[in-house]
């Protein structure tokens, strides 16, 4: 009897899996990033990935710093929209994969990521490619971290691209309001990490009609193969949330969103170094999105004390659209032009 039950359960399980695979379709096996790559270094959760470039490609290596809030492959979701594929064809391209941080890193400060981890990656790249400095591109909070790093280690960064990176948090829009009221002390006392699903839900929450509009768009366009490819790849990315380490999250909310210490030039690393924007020398491109609700245009302004050469390009799209939308190619080309000049 029990044997029969077992086989019945196994049978039902097989049917459920088959149905799920059929329903998920391409989404089920969609890759996390499409450009071929190899891991050249790792330290704890953090890995340094090198993307395979065509033979003979050389130049100053580019290090991409993705956001800690989500997975890096939003910059590499499909061949058609991939920033990384474009960069890898021009120059040696590396990326820091923050992995899936768990509670074991919940006590590490934000400076562990924006200083220690990035410095380790830069050191590895310099050793491997025999250069003394690298170019950098930071996306979203990754841009904030790349900016902080360029303040701390001005000799190691030649060019810096800040892709929709919030720097001045004085008027950071809807997220600043939520940060102001967020019970950060209670969070710190009860959790070692900010769960990824909660972060993802908060992004959906501030755009209450987003899901409805997305479903409507799906209904209008699902017969287009190119739309479905990008839609599936994006859903794959959205369904892959990452937890944010607890102490780093506490510092992100208090030091950046609430106190705006980076712009004030009073942000300190855990080992007591000041993140001083006036020390920066890297040639910088502020590449922002006109319809960005996560990093509104005013937040991408650099501090007045920052005297490094800066140029700006604004793309008419949203925070995610700038990497995968119809204007993504313009954004990518702007970054390439800046890095090659």
């Amino acid at each position: 009897m029990i044997g029969n039950m077992d086989s019945m359960v196994q049978h039902l399980d097989a049917i459920a899996e088959h149905v799920m695979r059929k329903t998920a379709g391409e989404l089920d096996t969609y890759p996390r990033g499409v450009t071929p790559r190899e891991e050249v270094y790792n330290a704890g959760n953090v890995s340094l990935l090198r993307f395979i470039s065509p033979e003979g490609v050389e130049g100053t290596p580019l290090l991409i710093i993705p956001s800690l809030i989500n997975r890096w492959y939003v910059l590499d979701v499909t061949e058609e929209t991939s920033f990384i594929k474009q960069f890898a064809q021009q120059r040696p391209t590396y990326l820091i994969d923050w992995g899936y941080p768990g509670e074991e890193v919940g006590h590490l400060p934000l400076s562990h990521y924006y200083h220690r981890s990035i410095k380790r990656a830069v050191r590895q790249i310099c050793r491997q490619t025999d250069v003394e400095k690298v170019d950098m591109l930071g996306y979203c909070i990754g841009g904030t971290m790349a900016y902080a790093f360029s303040c701390l280690e001005p000799d190691l960064v030649d060019h810096l691209v800040l892709l929709t990176a919030p720097i001045d948090f004085a008027d950071a829009g809807i997220f600043a309001k939520y940060a102001e009221y967020f019970p950060i002390e209670e969070f710190s006392a009860s959790m070692n990490k900010m769960p990824g699903w909660l972060l993802a839900a908060s992004f959906q929450f501030v755009q209450p009609m987003g899901l409805y509009q997305k479903t409507k768009m799906f209904n209008d366009k699902f017969e287009s193969e190119s739309f479905m490819k990008l839609y599936n790849a994006m859903e794959r990315w959205i369904a892959d949330p990452v937890d944010f380490p607890g102490k780093a999250y506490y510092e992100l909310i208090t030091d950046l969103y609430k106190k705006n210490l980076l712009t004030k030039g009073t942000l300190m690393t855990a080992d007591g170094q000041t993140v001083d924007p006036s020390a920066r020398r890297a040639k910088t491109l502020v590449l922002n999105a006109g319809k960005d609700h996560i990093a509104p245009l005013v937040t991408t302004e650099l501090p007045a004390s920052d005297l490094a050469p800066v140029s700006k390009v604004t793309i008419p799209s949203g925070h995610i659209g700038i990497t995968t939308g119809r204007n993504a190619k313009d954004a990518c080309q702007s970054a390439i032009d800046f890095l090659t000049n």
Binding site: E39, Y41, N42
Partner: peptide, 13 residues
């Protein structure tokens, strides 16, 4: 240079 943990991994597409 060799990877820190001496196990550089290839990622396939």
């Amino acid at each position: 240079a060799p990877a820190h943990d001496s196990k550089a991994k290839k990622h396939k597409k």
